[in-house]
Design a protein around this nucleic acid. Structure first.
Lengths: 153, 153
DNA sequence: AGGTTATAGTTTCATCTGTAACTATTTGCA
DNA sequence: TGCAAATAGTTACAGATGAAACTATAACCT
């Protein structure tokens, strides 16, 4: 006879994480996608350029954990839309030097508070100790490698 | 003057969750993709059919939190590959009745332990209280709606 | 019964995504 | 110097994805 051990998908951690991640990212992405026709990848690139200016595409890729192809595509859309200025690097003509344009900053300054508010609404559902533990869990399971932080806060 | 408030992407919860979710899902998917040429969506469908047999496609969609188009496509691949048997529902000829085939069960019984082992390796990095808290957090932020559980364990 | 509405599932289209191949430039080293 | 290897970034291709349109069947309502 059969002796199968089915998986309880609804209790399976990888599955639940992907659901949660989708819910969370979708909710916020919807807002800025509609208002600014900005994809999530584009927003991530803009967020990084808001914090670390004059990066190369490769550096953007490192900071966003996106692969270089995705970054290249997001950048070409952002440059076309006039939200990012791209220059050649003096002394290494392979590299580009990327910065938010004025218009890019306007979008950034509109979206960043939306993102923060969204995160707060999310965290408001948890109590203090749960938030701390979640941060610790994320540090353990998906540590972030961040280089220099221009803003020592 | 400028007065921008850049977002610390690497501390931003939605971003970190999506990274974690990718790491976790990728790691396991690689294994069964290579060995069984089974996509993640296909595996999810198989996992649900391993636990709840004779579902319709819509029911599979509900249990997997995938949309019906994705389920339809995964199913047609699985049926073509001989891993799922599809019949018409007596009394409602719109519906299909889906079951793992013998071969489907073989794949299921090979992949399910891999998935469990992967989850265990992941959780082994956390201590007991972190695991409990994580479960609680997931229940709060992404509650799962599950119907009848055939296996009261 | 007859016609409108709802449901199950598939197909289509436009977009996104990752891998690999490619171009251009720079670095390393004999 | 000069040539192989590495690096920055783009392009091409193949597969995945979601929204909307579509087909078939069933439910509802008079």
């Amino acid at each position: 006879m059969r002796n199968h051990k089915p998986l309880k998908l609804e209790r399976f951690l990888p599955y639940r994480l992907s659901i949660l991640s989708n819910i969370v990212s979708q909710a916020i992405a919807l807002e800025y996608q509609q208002r600014f026709s900005l994809s999530m990848t584009e927003w991530r690139v803009m967020a990084v350029l808001g914090r670390f200016s004059a990066l190369s595409a490769r550096e953007v890729a490192e900071h966003t954990a996106m692969d270089k192809v995705a970054v290249s595509r997001a950048l070409s859309r952002l440059v076309d839309a006039g939200r990012v200025d791209r220059h050649r690097h003096n002394g290494d003509r392979r590299r580009s030097v990327l910065r938010l344009s004025e218009d890019g900053w306007r979008v950034h300054d509109a979206v960043a508070p939306m993102a923060r508010a969204h995160e707060e609404r999310l965290l408001a559902q948890l109590d203090k100790s749960e938030i701390d533990t979640l941060a610790r869990i994320l540090d353990k399971l998906a540590p972030v490698q961040v280089r220099a932080d221009p803003d020592p806060g």
